[in-house]
Design a protein around this nucleic acid. Structure first.
Lengths: 206, 206
DNA sequence: CATCGCGTAGGACGACTGTCCTAATACTCC
DNA sequence: GGAGTATTAGGACAGTCGTCCTACGCGATG
């Protein structure tokens, strides 16, 4: 913190504020107050608010990439790596309950604003999707790897959204257990686990 | 449409705009343009923007309640009713892919704004949660009914968020099939279905 | 026809927003 | 110490926001 560049401080403060208050709702004045610099001076470091957003997303992408690299280093087993991802909602339960998922909420907001940086923010989802897909591929589920990656992503988004809405920590832990259980089944025998739908599946519907 | 009150027209237009563009991002000017009335004249019908939001949420609650009532009338089987809920993400796939879930995105936005109407909007989640809980109770899963209701809610939120981010209709259908499959298993034998975690479950984690 | 009141139009208001400009400061190297 | 660059402060700008006010149109009632 002490040795951080002014630019880095701005990005970090903006990151936090965008996460907690949303992008549009966060004004330059609020960021300036957080970094203790004057409002007009932003334009020495960034040429617009969108520019700050771009830097924030880039920083988040960097941080996530580093996180995934570390998981890969600490966990050789692909299944263990996937479990690490599943555990995120527990690890970050405090922030998630207060502010939701940083990736999901930002993407949703930028979509509603029709903001040009939406694609860049979508890269955060794509990053996790590709990483999970690779882990499932290594597990031997090559053909379904992408669908499984999406399923795990959907799990985390669903849990984050509801944990945020109801501020329910027990719910998070229950759902994580459920997902761990499903992963165990799926790793042992893909066909036995719920969701390994045969190719027809006309409709189990009413 | 033709016979609708000006007030009703305002609420309907605001509902659509809040959904598509977000609450904060939607200005009075935008609503006025949609309803073809003058901007300043809003305050004859509503005393503030928050007041419009309150009316929009109330209208959404009404509509959802009517929808659930209709499901109950058309579908006597609790399992069939739950499947109807699961099918929402398919039925509304176009809007969901374009704008996300109306309940989830509104709740998330109001939370970030620290808006007083957040609790009111949370009532939309609570409505579905209680309704699903009752269906699971009738299915005989009384003790787990609330947890199961939350699980189904999380499913819908996760699917909506990702379908929105990736605009992927096939993903929606896959996940819906997966959920139908899980429901079939769970209804037949709760212990066999993934997620029926025993009470200890120290850690399936690595 | 006159009166009343509901509904509307359109502009004015202060407060904010992101942006830009200019003057002053801090720091570095000769 | 002085010159030059890097960084900052603070105000001015035009635009938009939610809000409020006043005057006008219009239909019903007497």
């Amino acid at each position: 913190m002490g040795g951080a560049t002014t630019r880095e401080q701005i990005v970090e403060a903006a990151d936090q504020l965008f996460y907690r208050q949303g992008y549009e709702h966060t004004s330059f004045a609020a960021i300036a107050q957080a970094v203790h610099i004057s409002r007009g001076n932003f334009y020495y470091h960034f040429k617009s608010k969108d520019d700050i957003l771009g830097a924030v997303i880039a920083a988040r992408l960097d941080a996530r990439r580093r996180m995934l690299k570390q998981w890969e280093a600490e966990e050789a087993d692909p299944l263990g790596r996937i479990r690490r991802f599943v555990e995120i909602v527990v690890t970050n339960r405090a922030d998630i309950q207060s502010y939701g998922c940083p990736v999901g909420t930002l993407t949703t907001e930028l979509a509603k604003l029709e903001h040009p940086a939406l694609d860049q923010a979508g890269g955060l989802f794509t990053l996790f999707r590709a990483w999970l897909r690779e882990q499932f591929t290594r597990l031997g589920h090559e053909t379904q790897a992408d669908a499984l990656a999406m399923h795990v992503l959907a799990f985390s988004q669903g849990v984050a959204t509801l944990a945020h809405a109801f501020r329910d920590e027990d719910f998070i832990r229950r759902e994580v257990q459920r997902m761990h259980h499903w992963l165990s089944r799926y790793a042992a025998d893909p066909d036995s686990a719920t969701g390994a739908v045969p190719d027809d599946t006309a409709s189990a519907n009413a």
